[in-house]
């Protein structure tokens, strides 16, 4: 009898972001082409656990994922107790580039979901030279919030539980029940105000829209994946975004929602493998 031990290895790396020290948690599995994976708002690296445990994927790909500051096992910076967490495009870009640098990743594929997909497209427009290609999942140019982001940080209610109840709207009914709830648990666990601060970036910053035509897919391919059951980034939102990027491709995943790698790993893996095949080897 031997215990089942995941091949995923987790460590910490210290980086400086806007002059402040951050100890960032990251995980990796596999070898070969580096693929840097970005989690959604209000969640963490655990969203990528299935692909990191997928021997076919990791046979030729080194998957790396990290918890954004304030998320998962990455602590907030010193002095956080008097700060309002509000993610910005600039801080997000700085964080991703710092991790690429600190981990010595040579032109990784960047795979991001939701707000991670949004920042992947920003990086495709502004820092394409640091990456080999972009897999933007549930990613779009911009959507204003159809909810009040202040709901998710209040003294009289549990923001994580309310956030989970709201984002469950984006999970496909085809998702296995256990993975639906594993996915929601991460939202329930997110720190006070963190989901709200992520949504501030996601629902208020429109700066990507004019940058989309600048993306040169001849140098760095862009493939967008979107689930039919995603109410936040709908297939129409994703297709509109792909249409604005010359040469970008877009695939609609009929039975999936907004968190495909986490909510329905079996359903998502063929789409992700296909997306990896579209990226430079």
């Amino acid at each position: 009898m031997s215990a089942l031990i995941d091949p995923i290895v987790g460590r910490y790396v210290t980086v400086t972001l806007s002059g402040r020290t951050h100890r960032i948690y990251f995980e990796e599995a596999g070898q070969g082409r580096p693929v840097l994976c970005l989690h959604t708002a209000g969640a963490d690296t655990r969203q990528w656990r299935h692909l990191m445990n997928d021997a076919e994927v990791t046979a030729t790909n080194r998957l790396i994922a990290f918890d954004m500051p304030w998320h998962g096992k990455s602590l907030p910076p010193e002095g956080f107790e008097t700060e309002e967490y509000l993610l910005t495009t600039e801080a997000y870009i700085e964080t991703v580039l710092a991790l690429v640098e600190a981990l010595g990743l040579e032109k990784p594929v960047l795979a991001g979901c939701s707000m991670g997909g949004r920042i992947s497209l920003q990086l495709a427009a502004l820092h394409a030279d640091r990456f080999s290609g972009f897999i933007a999942i549930e990613a779009s140019d911009f959507q204003p919030a159809w909810y009040d982001i202040d709901w998710f940080h209040r003294p009289d209610a549990h923001g994580g539980e309310m956030g989970a109840a709201l984002v469950s709207a984006n999970i496909s009914p085809y998702a296995p029940n256990a993975e639906r709830w594993n996915t929601l648990w991460m939202f329930m666990q997110s720190g006070p105000g963190v989901f709200r601060g992520d949504l501030s970036f996601y629902t208020k910053d429109e700066s990507l829209i004019p940058r989309l035509p600048q993306i040169d897919t001849a140098k760095t391919p862009v493939h967008i994946l979107v689930g039919s059951y995603d109410l936040t980034c709908t297939p129409e939102d994703a297709q509109r975004t792909a249409d604005a990027i010359p040469g970008a491709t877009c695939t609609v995943m009929e039975e999936l929602g907004h968190f495909p790698m986490s909510e329905h790993p079996e359903g998502f893996r063929p789409f992700f493998i296909d997306a990896l095949d579209k990226m430079p080897a």
Binding site: W146, Y147, W151, A157, L166, S168, L231
Partner: peptide
């Protein structure tokens, strides 16, 4: 059609009144 807010999003439902009470008890 898979979620209350889905119905709202596709224009087949509307939520009125004290929506914060709904959100606090959303699950």
């Amino acid at each position: 059609f898979h979620d209350v807010f889905g119905l709202v999003k596709i224009g087949r439902a509307r939520v009125d009144g004290d929506i914060l009470v709904l959100v606090k008890n959303l699950r």
